[in-house]
Write a protein that binds this DNA or RNA. Sequence first.
RNA 1: GCCGGGGUGGCGGAGCGGUCAAUCGCACCUGACUGUAAAUCAGGCGGCCUAGUGUCUACGGGAGUUCGAAUCUCUCCCCCGGCA
Length: 325
Amino acid sequence: MQVDKNMINEKCKKKKIIVVVGPTSSGKTSLAVKLAEHFNGEIISADSRQVYIGMDLGTGKEGDSVSINLPDLGPQSARVIHGIPQFLIDVATPLETYTVADFQKQALTLIDNFANRGKIPIIVGGTNLYIQALVEGFSIPVTDQRELTIRQELELLPSGEILDKLKVLDQVSFEKINHQNLRRIIRALSVTMATSIPFSYQQKKSGSNFDTIYFGNDLPRQELYQKIDKRVDDRIGNGMIEEVQSLIDSGIPKERLISFGLEYRYITLYLTNEIPSKEEMIEKLKYAIHAYARRQLTWLKNRTPVIWVKNEHQAISQTAKFLAK
RNA sequence: GCCGGGGUGGCGGAGCGGUCAAUCGCACCUGACUGUAAAUCAGGCGGCCUAGUGUCUACGGGAGUUCGAAUCUCUCCCCCGGCA
């Protein structure tokens, strides 16, 4: 009984955060801005590509680019829409590697800062891993130079050898991760080797640090695809190809751009003639984005309790209840 | 009109007498996911059901040959190229 009471107190102490998720092109940003306006919030972007400076059209950054001086934290780059700032945009160069762990740390810092200023944190973005890591408090296995070196060495080995090693050192990961998925197999092995602790034992959750409500815009699949296609056409018209060209010109390696996926991948392939025609590139890009949207939905479907809304009014009334409780 | 080539699943495209409900690619559907995650990877994909070495309808239409046809023959329809 006493335990129960503590748990309730604990729960009440948790910070409330609002999270807007959903597939690309589903209108997350505008929903988030509406909620922020309505409930005195500020936005943290959870988008693994919008963090990069100079990748604007291709990632769909919106609003005016500004620098905001936050107490204790100093100047922060942000984009402002209708007076609402969005943080964690333009925080790294495309040559730097920005990871979930960076996001987790920076978002946590910002949430504290928001709390001090009486702002409700609204997390919006398509990178579901980032959101889950933040909300559920993933303790992410350490990566240091040693681990990176081991990883690079492993990448040169034949897959059979890599699998044999993993089987010996971390049976759980060996069984859990699909053997074709070398990227994840190698990461599990390199962490295990670098730390001498099986990767699978290190994937802990500290539990939810927050009292969280999730929203997503509910859209029929066909309508989603149409919006995606239109958005691609519009952005091409607005100079997205030129943006990628200028990234190439500024010295970002083609392989790096290709590794970003979607617009950066397909446009780079077109600019380097690996995809000969513009029409073909655009078609492939659209289909790739459809597939990406499906992956996002799969993720959410099986692990996130999303309230799917038809319009912002539904989200606003649900949020009002959530904040009042 | 004549001479060639061709009509296969939502699309592209294999198959050219049996092991074909039909290789493969695309679209589409489903799933995995803890320091690259817009990444990386896996499965499904004619209908039906008691879900199976089950059943039905299928390779432009029709008629044949054959134990057996998407595969051979005839005929009709339609496309493409050449000659008129």
